[in-house]
Design a protein around this nucleic acid. Sequence first.
DNA 1: ATCATCACTTGAAACCTTTCATAACCATCA
DNA 2: TGATGGTTATGAAAGGTTTCAAGTGATGAT
Lengths: 344, 344
Amino acid sequence: MVSERRGQTAGVKAVAAAAGVSLGTVSNVLNRPEMVSPVTRAKVEAAMTQLGFVRNESARQLRAGSSRILAYLMLDAGNPFFTDVAKGVEEAARAAGLSVFLCNSNEDASREADYLDLLEQQRVQGVLITPIDQHSSRLRNLPARGTPVVVVDRAIDDDQHCSVAVNDVLGGELAIAHLLELGHERIAYVGGPETIGQVTDRRAGGWAALRKAGRPASDLIEINTGALTVAEGRGAGQRLAGLPAARRPTAAFCANDLLALGLLQQCVTLGIRVSEDLAIVGYDDIEFAAAAAVPLTSVRQPRQLLGRTAAELLLDESANPDHEHQRVIFTPELVVRTSTSGAG
Amino acid sequence: MVSERRGQTAGVKAVAAAAGVSLGTVSNVLNRPEMVSPVTRAKVEAAMTQLGFVRNESARQLRAGSSRILAYLMLDAGNPFFTDVAKGVEEAARAAGLSVFLCNSNEDASREADYLDLLEQQRVQGVLITPIDQHSSRLRNLPARGTPVVVVDRAIDDDQHCSVAVNDVLGGELAIAHLLELGHERIAYVGGPETIGQVTDRRAGGWAALRKAGRPASDLIEINTGALTVAEGRGAGQRLAGLPAARRPTAAFCANDLLALGLLQQCVTLGIRVSEDLAIVGYDDIEFAAAAAVPLTSVRQPRQLLGRTAAELLLDESANPDHEHQRVIFTPELVVRTSTSGAG
DNA sequence: ATCATCACTTGAAACCTTTCATAACCATCA
DNA sequence: TGATGGTTATGAAAGGTTTCAAGTGATGAT
């Protein structure tokens, strides 16, 4: 009984010796099994299982120069919207025989930067990213150095990479137009920080809707949050409740559903009636929006499709020599529920 | 103007040439900067940025033999419970200067197996996993071959690895005991599939509570689901509603909050009053539980702590030569809300 | 018999870093 | 002056795989 020290892994060399063949043949069994005679292949495979051979991917990648991994650098893994996008990515990647590593920047620019460096060093096949800072030089440099990038949920007119997005300005417009139609005259826009493109686009859409309706700018009040989370949504609720009744909005449009759910929850806690006292519109239409204390009106985006399309563009970029960068833009859709339409 | 072909990256050799130093010196700047004189270091660093040098991690890892990456193979990335666990993992890893890759098995055993193979081939520093099948041979083999493993959210009496868990049997007991105390005499246990340990443990706890209360086995009805998702929860709601009134349970304990939220949502849709007609208890106490249509009674687990502890055990295992495998078990806590306690 | 063909196999080179023993250099001290 | 020690730089070897040109036999055709 030979006791193997931990970490002692047999390599192709050992397998070759055990099977009585050459190194190259073992490699062929691994990479081009059809070129190896059935009997030899069987011998090699037997040796592999017997020795517990595990291919060293670092060495493989170093020599072969290609990675079988795709990374999706998410803005917030705790937001079900992005995990749905990730599902779409995984689906497309799996269909192409690749694996996906998920990375979570968690709305932190330095973590995003660290991950980008790491992924570049890993020489992954490509990076999908929903960026915090879409103008970061690191992000722009990646493609030129050989790592394809696709920006997800952000439209970018950069000729370095593809992007797949949903028209956030239109989404914001839909939301505010809906609230204006319902007769609201003092509306809050809840969102932040400014660095996140989604936040500013959706807000811009809101302003556009206001302008189109011929309403004064004073009808839209901006409430800034530090992040797009449930906790920040609750905080925004506190702030809204603290306003003197005369200046308190009768409706709120939140930059995403997490904020909206937090706000909604705070309203329930404080006894503010959602819809009657404060109408709320969210954004993303995550699965939990429909199950909320008061079902949430929200702007729906094609979540999985977003991820799938992005992954497909990335795959095309690395496979197709005359790939052309594209900007795909989907259209959002307003889903009206009780949080704005009352007892429904 | 030299046009570089895509993917053409400068290596240490090129940097050394450009800086007029030897290869080894460049490596020293990278790995032991304190051993190289400030002036030389400056020269090398200048050359690096000028050439856009990006260290090839495959080569580094091949030679150095160590990875700076930790993987967390999640049961369901779409479940906020696991993303909270992941946050804990990231926190601990970051404190130790490591990065985390998230992988999503999505309750699919073959995806879990693929990821385990991949991670082993990548020679990651260690694998954290919430397994679908905790008895898989693949899982048991990893540690012996040099990849440390920590099982998260499952207690395993295997001497191959550490595990960090919450006492799910106790959690199930708390839930059912609570419902029994409220006077319910026909209770449904909603969960599945059987292969998932959490499902069977929580159910076992439920049966234990029933026994302790001296109630007949007929008081607990099992409703099987195909996965632990909101959609399956809605399906369970349909099935419950379809039962003849005489056999329909007055309370339901769900194996996790996603199921509970789906069930709850279906009840609202069907006009079944939650708490009055059907009391519901969930499990995990995810952030959305409190914000649900009817705030959800749930069994709370220390989510981030779970992840942090697991990561710390893993780090100890790879750093500390006389590491001993441990089984850490936390205690769950029942959080009572309106879904069981009525208008509250 | 000879030669071309075919189906496999082989072994050395290459991929890019890190490591480590050795060398070079300089300053200090006896 | 020569020896000593300390600091910094060097260059060859090593790590595990893939690749590819070249080799080996066997088969079939001439």
